[in-house]
Design a protein around this nucleic acid. Structure first.
Length: 563
RNA sequence: GUCCCAGUAGCUCAGUGGAUAGAGCAACGGCCUUCUAAGCCGUGGGCCGGGGGUUCGAAUCCCUCCUGGGACGCCA
């Protein structure tokens, strides 16, 4: 709702609290009765007014009479000074409905025009530092569909929180050490010898992607066969370094093409290099949360809500991934983030309780860590599921997806569904240039408006803006009022989406706005509607453009001026 | 076996305590000498997986069962 509408809602809420207090004696409620957690919401059905509250329904037990009777008592004590509430009606089982003076809509467009591209922004965060970590793929190959969904989701969440006034940092955790990286080294070694004509198979659990064949080929071009005779450790080290120096910038470039820019690329290796892992282990040990068993060092995760205890240092003395991850999360808090959000694939959900447990063990509030668990992505082409297997190296990469369907469609499709729904990505739909495709439907609305403005400029006209607000009371057609009403929802929608860490709400909202615009556009002429009416409609159209553009920006989707 | 996610229109999914459950696509029927038809209008389509419970009120919360996916490693 517009800021004005939000104010009205807050005013109604206050008035209801006042009415509750005043109605205590009449309802036979003693002073110990607290007001129940009632809602003031916008009813789905327009006939039920602009706002409705369930307060009376929630008081039936305490007041021991029918909700409609309670509602009548409440309403008799209700005073709504200075609010543009036109009537209050008791309806249905006992809802109290508030109908606003319909003229309130007239204030929406001037409000949007005044805020411009800042319309919808809030300062709920007050500059609080929040970190969003997402993708964090192993630097061992190319980015796949799961990474892509994580990128779109994480970036969308970050954008929403930024819109809400948080100081947001986007971070990529680079797993540049450990078992997976060793696998990469061994896979590179195999591809290296293969390039030199030797029969040397890629390890069973190695990386079988074709990209390593090319990487090894470039290594040979640069270094020839001289590493063939080196000690294996040196050879693998050189191959690994070469691969990482190629893979990391490649992933960065891909994500850049996807419209995702990180503030920090955080190296896991760096945690070891500066002793952060050891320090964290010492801290946990000092707090009495570790013990040794069978030559390994264990964390008492079970005592902190985990399913079972977890190994932090193996028998062979090498810390586990989990140990490094704890050190990493401690580092996040040490850097001053007081809210930490991770976007993880569903295959990591079991990691959540022990990570939170580790934070609790270190003395942090585990509730300051939010982990958004994202379900898997399935690709469809021609109605058939595209089988993907990392082991065989057969999977569609993000690069290929961007090549095939383009950035906007990819970004939009990945955030159309809630994170905890499986995502079926229909490649044919995403790249179709027809009305089947929701991305183009929305972008088309923006392009149409832009086209209007081009023609207006050719006629020497200007878009009504900050000075000289036109007479918006002329916008009384149903299609106009419906569009204005929906534009008024934007700040509330953005706030709810941020609160739920759910960009898909914005995806649905912006589609809705586009639909209302197309409906309006088809029913009413803008240019040539008559001087006063044309001005008013231009203003409506411009405000629609502002909201479309802002909402699309939150999703990382462009707002084209032509299509 | 234990835990997590999902099950809503033919398909893909929104809606997670409110009043008569929505959208897109698909199906069917209309609208282009007029600001972009990548558009609009209309029609049909639902035991909200089954059962039980809590509540004035349940798609939404609880229990149980069924189905699909995922996790349960000194991998990450």
């Amino acid at each position: 709702m517009s800021y004005l509408l939000a104010g009205l809602r807050a005013g109604i809420e206050r008035a209801l609290r006042g009415a509750f207090e005043a109605a205590r004696p009449g309802l036979g409620l003693d002073s110990g009765t607290v007001i129940p957690p009632f809602t003031v919401e916008v009813p789905r059905d327009k006939d039920h007014g602009d706002f409705a509250t369930n307060l009376a329904l929630l008081l039936t037990k305490a007041a021991r009479r029918s909700p409609r009777q309670i509602a009548e008592v409440l309403v008799s004590h209700l005073s709504l000074p200075e609010l543009s509430v036109k009537e209050v009606i008791i309806a249905g089982p006992g809802f109290i409905n508030f109908r606003l003076d319909p003229d309130w809509l007239h204030s929406v467009l001037p409000e949007i025009a005044a805020w411009g591209d800042r319309y919808g922004r809030r300062n709920l965060g007050g500059g609080r530092k929040v970190q969003v970590e997402f993708v964090s793929a192993n630097p061992t190959g190319l980015l796949h569909m799961g990474n892509a969904r994580g990128a779109a989701l994480g970036d969308g969440i970050a954008a929403l929180l930024s819109f809400m006034g948080f100081d947001v940092a986007r971070e990529f955790y680079v797993n540049d050490t450990g078992h997976q990286v060793e696998n990469l080294a061994l896979s590179m070694e195999a591809r290296y010898f293969q390039a030199l004509g030797r029969d040397w198979p890629v390890p069973e659990d190695g990386y079988h992607g074709e990209d390593l064949v090319e990487t090894a080929g470039r290594f040979v071009a640069e270094h020839g066969d001289r590493f063939a005779v080196h000690a294996p450790d040196e050879r693998r080290e050189a191959l690994l370094r070469f691969a990482l120096e190629e893979k990391l910038p490649a992933m960065r470039a891909t994500l850049d093409d996807f419209g995702v820019r990180y503030d920090v690329w955080f190296s896991e290796q760096s945690l070891y290099a500066r002793g952060a892992v050891r320090e964290t282990l010492e801290l946990l040990r000092a707090r009495g949360h570790l013990y040794e068993r069978e030559g390994a060092l264990w964390f008492k995760a079970g005592a902190f809500g985990g399913d079972k205890d977890e190994v932090l240092v193996r028998q062979n003395g090498v810390p586990t991934y989990f140990a490094a991850d704890i050190a990493y999360h401690k580092d996040k808090y040490d850097r001053g983030f007081d809210w930490v959000i991770n976007v993880w694939g569903a295959d990591h959900h079991g990691h959540v309780p022990r990570m939170k447990g580790a934070l609790a063990a270190l003395g942090y509030d585990p509730d300051t860590l939010d982990v958004v668990i994202m379900q898997l992505v399935r690709l469809y082409r021609g109605g058939e599921m595209v089988r993907m297997s990392k082991r065989t190296g057969q999977y569609v990469t993000l690069d290929e997806l961007l090549e095939e369907v383009g950035r906007d469609a990819a970004r939009y499709f990945f955030v159309t569904r809630g994170a905890d729904s499986h995502l079926d990505f229909d490649l044919d739909l995403a790249k179709s240039r027809t009305n089947e495709n929701p991305v183009y439907y929305i972008q088309y609305a923006h392009a149409r408006i832009s086209s209007l403005f081009r023609q207006l400029a050719e006629r020497g006209g200007t878009v009504p803006g900050y000075q000289g607000i036109p007479d918006v009371t002329l916008l009384e057609a149903e299609a106009e009022r419906a569009l204005i009403r929906r534009l008024a929802d934007f700040p509330e929608e953005a706030a709810l989406a941020a609160y739920d860490l759910a960009p898909h709400r914005i995806a649905h909202y912006v589609h809705d706005v586009a639909g209302l615009f197309h409906h309006f556009y088809n029913a009413h002429r803008v240019l040539g509607a008559g001087e006063k009416l044309e001005e008013a409609r231009l203003m409506l159209v411009n405000c629609t453009r502002v909201v479309l553009k802002s909402a699309l920006a939150l999703l990382g989707v462009s707002a084209p001026e032509r299509m």
